[in-house]
Write a protein that binds this DNA or RNA. Sequence first.
RNA 1: GCCCUCAUGGUCAAGCGGUCAAGACAUCGCCCUCUCACGGCGGUAACAAGGGUUCGAUUCCCUUUGGGGGUACCA
Length: 484
Amino acid sequence: MNNIKSRFAPSPTGYMHIGNLRTALYSYLIAKSQGGSFMLRIEDTDQNRYVEGAMDVIYRTLKICGLEYDEGPDKDLGNGPYIQSQRKDLYVKYAKKLVELGHAYYCFCSKERLDNLRAELEGKGLPYEYDGCCKKLTPEEIQAKLDAGEPYVIRQIMPREGVSEYEDAVYGHISINNNTLEEQILLKSDGLPTYNFANVIDDHLMGVTHVVRGNEYITSTPKYNLLYEAFGWEAPCYIHLPHITKEGGKKLSKRDGDASFEDFYSKGYLTEAIINYVALLGWSPGGEREIFSLKELEEVFSIKGINNSPAVFDITKFRWMNSEYIKMMKPEDFHAAALPYYEKALTRKVDLVRVSSLLQSRVEVLSEIPDYIDFLENTLEYDVSMYVHKKMKTTVEGSLETLTGLIPVLESITDWQEDIIHQTLMGHVAQLGVKNGVVLWPLRTALSGKMSTPGGATEIAYILGKDETINRVTTAIEFIKSQI
RNA sequence: GCCCUCAUGGUCAAGCGGUCAAGACAUCGCCCUCUCACGGCGGUAACAAGGGUUCGAUUCCCUUUGGGGGUACCA
């Protein structure tokens, strides 16, 4: 293991956004592809956002996805604690040190004063900016306020002139005017740090060399670099990632059920497919291959392949990829995965293994299994016109005749096995001297009431069993008669 | 408003000064076929616009347009 170290530093919001999952994945892959280590840190410095059980979601998701971290809250390698709220004193210490170094100052402005200031400036059509009021305080005044126990924050001092520049691994050269840099709050009045401060302190103290995060931090990165400089620390390598959106540039939303890992997971998307698809959203291996396991991604991943333009999450292609993974499953694994869905949709005792073999090449997402097999449970309602099929050369009247003639044929089958049913039906077709469809289409329709089914007439007849098959054909005959 | 950033088919995406501009999903057609699917074959479809630089721009620069982000005691 070399000295490359990346981290995933989510704040516990209660669910794993798909964009966050990708950030975690890329961070993991950047480290693993270079023999480095991967760390998990929890950024819970905003107490107002505390969500019960949120950390478990993070642990669980990473575990299910196979993104194993070398170091984290439950794996202390000596850099802990890895939960920011437990590192409070550390930030206070460094914030005060920064004041001593002349790169930060105490600010006693109340929330109210700031709100008023903001309202006033906005009223004049000016952009808000802290007016530096507390910067003018003398050391004596500051000490007096401190002694009096006045609440305070600590703000970072920004250069007024010049430009700050840095190299981003995916966006290249970034240059930002210093006069756009705000004298941001480093330490909040509750004694906890802001993200802007905590991430710098922690990344340095924990030895993080590669910072992977969303591109919303591109413009604030110079502020972090200034912090590194002030402390005399080396800044890490920055890898900012473009965002994932949905069609039309809209945000993936929790409400629409397309935002989080668990949304997809619960719908029956396979984790391997989720990882694979998400890996390809914003990164390209360069070749034509698209199917990669996590292990394979670890081999081929490269920062060079990361794209800098935003990507649209295409559910259609995602479904296709999931179906590819379903098709790759061992039949017994697919069957095991499908079983819970059968139990929900089916009470009739049928050859479920056969059903699985029919379904595996058709199902794209596990949760749609009930829609495929609903007709096995009960006959569906349908219109007689379904018996009219141009290509099969069938008509309603013809179907009635066909089905009526089929009853004795079906009854003659004593050993209800698929190949025997098939042979018998084909023999009947040959005897009639018609096209296969003339007999099989009406039969399939009578048995299912659906335009399309997993498997044809033979397979369905086999699955339903002799009694139910004859029963359904009889019912269909009566039905057609009643409609003519 | 100001600042940053992005721009190849409907979507992902290769390309990194000279290509008939890959591939995948989707879509359309054909084949296979007891429906559908799988599989196979083929088709339609793109360099946002305008200026430069250059012998030559999808590729480099500028502007415009459009998208995204930032401008919090949120991350």
